[in-house]
Design a protein around this nucleic acid. Structure first.
Length: 570
RNA sequence: GGGUGCGUAGCUCAGUCGGUAGAGCAACUGGCUUUUAACCAGUAGGUCCUAGGUUCGACCCCUAGCGCACUCACCA
């Protein structure tokens, strides 16, 4: 399936030829500036004091390159040679940052219409505009090849001296990373490469930062995460992942809307924490003079909407948890939560497996995927396994056989925090969870570890809850929702009494009141979207499916961006 | 928060028994009109993460710090 962003085209007229291009190239300023750079470096290396600044105080000059001479606020990544080219361009009457873009033909459309050298398509011979980023330059003297990348793909541009009288004297100012518009005729090279043979070149934005190494690309993970804007154009694979992420979100919305679900938005700032057990971020509202919690889950608001009669709602909610970071955890993450009146956890299983299975079909046309080097089939229906069975087969005893389980915990070296059910679940996670390869639904949890789920009608020890697992990783969690207000109030009170820092400090009375008005029987489901995207795009780390994963703020002296005082302006 | 590892040119990486550092790419100069990691010749480019310490001498050894990665713990 091809990835298409919005089809809306901004109808820019084809740009006129810049009058400045006619003027002869003046290379003197560029060479002069470069020579000064070299001299300055030489002098620094020899530790000899500079006698009088030629046109600049030395320290700022050395730290920040030529940006300061140009009266610009520049960061340390700007390259002096590229900054010098800015001046060359301006001296030639060319604006390196012109106000208008170019409405180029999307490159994938161009390529699709090109055919092959043997069987040329309808686009061959056409003259049109393409716009994008120059990725590299291969200079043959009177011919330069450069791949140009837009959001849809890349195509080679051929720049020939004899076809570009205006541009040719300025060709040395063109660098990898620059954004350009090219008008040219479509054709092939001798090697059969589809090529735009340029007749006009427009600089759309000069890149003054050095692009990544052309063969290895950006490999340093930190730089990739911090400068995702580079990572995205430097790596087709990274762009692919985020286009797929966008497509997954869009598919989920269509899937749920087709089933009569309404997308809603509920508060992110919560006066009382609730809906999940997790350490919250706390912020403060000045006018109300009250502390607020960034939501750890939208659950309690969404269920209020079930009380309100919306019956089928979902929210794709950013949740915030003040906990550790890992390959599966980011402090803010996206969760799909949905609630359906007159449904139970069996319905939630059906929705989950159908949705995941159809997402795979939509992305790949099949349900077989590879993740973490293993093969999985996401075809619905998924396996159902009970918590009790999984516990029994991994440990050789029943989950509620307290003496046996305690002995097993001791064997495993697990710490007993006093609560049997917590210990029991620790044993489960230490022994059984890794075998939950799946995709499978682990069903019917002991009621003691399910504070928000309804008791099972068939076994009073159990709650109607499932979690979905893939390769030992939890992807989602669902219940038949508790709707008994008195029971709910008791459970809230127990949380408050526990004094657990991850539990609310007060009972959410308003929510209990909502239940007192009557909430229909309902099923609820939460799916970790980031993890689902990991699985569907083949990424091992959550950071590779988040455009801007949480990173520590760089310390002063790091490679952070900061403005410098400009002596030219002073 | 604990453990392990890493930090050298704009990028990707070498390197040294402790004697002031190299390559490829990028840049710059010259050559080349069908390449695609173009090629050939040349030039320039470094606070070897930071701060202390040991030493005649530290990129290398020691200590502390900063940052990142992996991993453990908690969680989705």
């Amino acid at each position: 399936m091809a990835f298409k962003r919005s089809g809306v085209q901004i109808p820019y007229p084809p740009p006129p030829t810049l009058p400045g291009c006619m003027r002869p190239l003046c290379m003197r300023p560029l060479e002069g500036l470069l020579a000064k750079t070299r001299r300055a470096r030489k002098q620094r290396n020899s530790a000899a004091p500079l006698e009088g600044p030629p046109f600049l105080p030395v320290p700022a000059f050395l730290r920040h390159g030529l940006g300061t001479t140009l009266g610009l606020a520049m960061t340390e990544i700007a390259q002096s040679d590229r900054l010098a080219k800015l001046e060359t361009l301006r001296a030639a009457g060319i604006d390196p940052y012109p106000p208008r873009g170019v409405d180029g033909t999307p490159i994938d459309q161009v390529l699709a219409g090109m055919g092959s050298p043997e069987a040329p398509g309808p686009m061959c011979g056409k003259v049109l505009w393409v716009a994008g980023r120059v990725l590299s330059l291969r200079d043959f003297g009177k011919l330069i090849f450069c791949p140009v990348l837009d959001r849809t793909g890349r195509i080679q541009v051929g720049l020939q001296r004899d076809a570009l009288a205006d541009f040719w004297p300025m060709r040395k100012t063109l660098d990898a990373g620059d954004l350009v518009g090219i008008r040219g005729e479509l054709g092939f090279t001798q090697k059969g490469e589809p090529t735009v043979w340029a007749q006009e070149v427009r600089l759309l934005a000069k890149s003054v930062a050095a692009p990544p190494e052309k063969w290895h690309g950006l490999t340093d993970k930190e730089t990739r995460y911090r400068r995702r804007y580079v990572d995205l154009w430097a790596s087709d694979e990274v762009m692919r992942v985020f286009l797929q992420r966008s497509q997954i979100l869009s598919s989920i919305r269509r899937f749920l809307e087709a089933r009569g679900y309404l997308e809603v938005e509920t508060p992110t700032l919560h006066p009382i924490m609730g809906g999940a057990t997790a350490r919250p971020f706390i912020t403060h509202h000045n006018a109300l003079d009250t502390d607020l919690y960034l939501r750890v889950a939208p659950e309690l608001y969404l269920k209020r909407l079930i009380v309100g009669g919306m019956e089928r709602v979902f929210e794709i909610a950013r949740n915030f948890r003040n906990e550790g970071l890992s390959v599966r955890h980011n402090p803010e993450f996206t969760m799909l939560e949905l609630y359906q009146a007159h449904a139970d956890y069996h319905h939630m299983m059906e929705i989950t497996e159908t949705m995941i299975s159809s997402l795979a079909m939509e992305l790949y046309g099949r349900t077989q995927i590879t993740w973490r080097g293993k093969e999985f089939d996401l075809k619905a229906p998924f396996e159902r396994r009970t918590y009790a069975d999984a516990f029994q087969s991994a440990n050789g005893c029943a989950f509620d056989d307290e003496p046996a389980v305690r002995a097993r915990a001791k064997e495993l070296g697990l710490h007993d925090h006093g609560d049997y059910w917590k210990l029991m679940n620790d044993v489960f996670e230490a022994t059984a969870e890794k075998d939950l390869i799946g995709p499978l639904f682990l069903c019917d949890y002991p009621i003691q570890i399910c504070p928000l789920a309804k008791r099972s009608t068939s076994d009073p020890r159990l709650a109607e809850r499932f979690e979905i697992f893939l390769d030992g990783m939890e992807l989602g969690n669902a219940f038949t929702e508790l709707n008994d207000p008195a029971d709910q109030q008791e459970r809230f009170q127990a949380q408050v009494d526990s004094k657990d820092p991850e539990s609310p400090a007060e009972v959410d009375i308003d929510y209990v009141q909502a239940l007192e008005y009557g909430m229909p029987p309902a099923g609820g489901l939460g799916i970790g979207i980031d993890r689902l995207v990991m699985v569907l795009t083949g990424q091992d780390s959550i950071r590779d499916v988040l455009l801007f994963p949480a990173m520590r703020k760089l310390a002063p002296g790091g490679n952070e961006v900061h403005e410098v005082e400009s002596p030219a302006e002073a």
